[in-house]
Design a protein around this nucleic acid. Structure first.
Length: 420
RNA sequence: GGAGAGGUGCUAGAGCGGUUGAAUAGGCCGGUCUCGAAAACCGGUGUGGGCUUUAUGUCUACCGAGAGUUCGAAUCUCUCCCUCUCCGCCA
């Protein structure tokens, strides 16, 4: 959510942002409703002031045993007027609120303007695709032969998109989770184990609700949702709090499974581990001083990149264009790892600055020295999402015989150096 | 799941229809005292919204959330949420 005052004072900037990102433009309507709201507020507050004064006069009269009937008559009118104005005000505010939730975050000036993935700009590449003298297999062929990930039986147990990790596959998964968490902690993030179910208020805070309900699994009996990402529970930890300025930045890292319905996906995008309904992810979340949030975005990117570098995987960094950015983001990088078996890039991390957009929804503030509370800026990034990293490792480190060499950094976590 | 108690400011804790935005204590900030500190004493210490001559300004709202009764609600009523105690169930 944006600041109403900001929209009032800079409607053109907000419209410009909407134009770049795409979506409905309700700015004029908001400005109009805001005007109505303030006019009504002025009227009703004068009446409320009158009510308070007369009420206390009645109190005094009664105490002294005097007659207060004329005051009581006046109050009858005032009371009804207040009721009328309050009703109208409530309607205007409800409508205003509804529209406010439909205004996307304003993209940062450094974000390229565009509408399709082709408009994203590649910032850098790291590493190289391995040089091999055989035809690399895609991971789904490798895992079937090695019997470390079982897609078919996952279908039996739950449905498509719920893979079963077995033996060294399961151990590799656990090794990566531990590796990612340890690296996060070493870089100053506090490890968090959040709830895996979230309520509607939390989902609204980070922006999954009201518009993206379709991406989450719902628990109707208890009015809860399965976490689509650790971002939701972890960011909401500090909801409705005023933080000490000296405690910023606050950095959390958390491993959770993530549950996504991914309705409407199909084809090669969902083959194997490319897109599944349940997957593991370590998420990095920061609450920072607004003045430094873009520096913090860069360091968050560095934190995530370090993981891929230590795994020795070839990857590239994309700066996402306005149209390819989410509703809540001001600026976003994606990390894409090279899949040699599929000959394509796979997204393994999404690193975003939300500025005050989420903080305003969640009411997360800090107290500047001697001043009024201000909203923090929130950021998050995957560090990292497991399935495609696993896919890339299996494909990148495969041998001609269909075995897989485990990256050295993981040896102490896996306890083995080769799969097969 | 059953029975009971309760949710008040940074914290503890009064208030249970009328100068209560809220006693009192602690904390925190500032001051006096001191070579310095402690103690003692004095003063200050919430958030959102509106208005304007943007100010040691003013109005309004906020005592778990929402609705209601009343001229007037932290105080009474209803619904919901949460916490605690006991019982039941249980990794």
């Amino acid at each position: 959510m944006l600041d109403l005052k900001f929209i009032r004072e800079h409607p053109d900037l907000v419209k410009e942002g909407i134009r770049k990102k795409g979506g409905a433009d309700h700015v004029d309507e908001i400005v109009k409703l805001d005007g109505q709201r303030r006019a009504l507020l002025q009227e009703v507050e004068v009446l409320k002031n009158r009510r308070n004064i007369v009420s206390s006069e009645i109190g005094h009269s009664k105490k002294e045993g005097k007659d207060a009937s004329s005051a009581l008559t006046e109050m009858e009118t005032v009371k009804n007027q207040i009721r009328t104005y309050d009703d109208e005000l409530r309607q205007v505010e409800e409508q205003l609120n509804l529209l406010m939730f439909q205004i996307p975050n304003v993209p940062h000036p450094s974000v390229p303007v565009g509408t399709t993935p082709a408009d994203n700009s590649e910032i850098s590449r790291w590493g190289e695709s391995p040089v091999i003298d055989f035809i690399p297999k895609p991971h789904w062929d490798l895992v079937a032969k090695l019997d470390i990930i079982d897609f078919e039986r996952g279908v039996k147990v739950t449905g498509a998109g719920f893979p079963i990790f077995k033996g060294k596959g399961a151990k590799l998964e656990r090794a990566l989770i531990n590796f990612f968490l340890d690296e996060g902690v070493a870089r100053g993030y506090k490890e968090i184990q959040p709830p895996l179910l979230i309520n509607a208020v939390s989902a609204k805070g980070t922006g999954q609700l009201p518009d993206k309900e379709d991406l989450m699994y719902v628990i109707p009996n208890d009015d809860l949702y399965l976490v689509p990402t650790a971002e939701v529970p972890v960011t909401n930890i500090l909801r409705d709090e005023i933080l000490n300025e000296k405690d910023l930045p606050i950095k959390y890292c958390a491993y959770t499974p993530c549950f996504r319905r991914e309705a409407g996906s199909y084809g090669k995008d969902v083959r194997g581990l490319n897109r599944v309904h349940q997957f593991d992810k370590v998420e990095l979340v920061k609450f920072v001083h607004p003045g430094v949030s873009y520096n913090e975005l860069e360091s968050l990117r560095v934190d995530a990149e370090a993981l891929l570098q230590k795994l020795g995987l070839h990857y590239r960094v994309l700066l996402m264009c306005t149209g390819d950015m989410g509703f809540t983001q001001s600026k976003k990088y994606d990390l894409e790892v090279w899949s040699i078996g599929q000959q394509r890039w796979l997204e393994v991390s999404s690193i975003s600055n939300f500025e005050a957009f989420q903080a305003r929804r969640m009411n997360i503030r800090f107290r500047p020295a001697g001043g009024k509370p201000e909203f923090v800026h929130t950021l998050n990034g995957s560090g990292l999402a497991l399935p495609r990293v696993v896919a890339a490792i299996l494909e990148h480190y495969q041998t001609p015989e269909g075995k897989v060499i485990v990256p050295k950094i993981l040896h102490k976590y896996t306890g083995f150096e080769i799969i097969g």
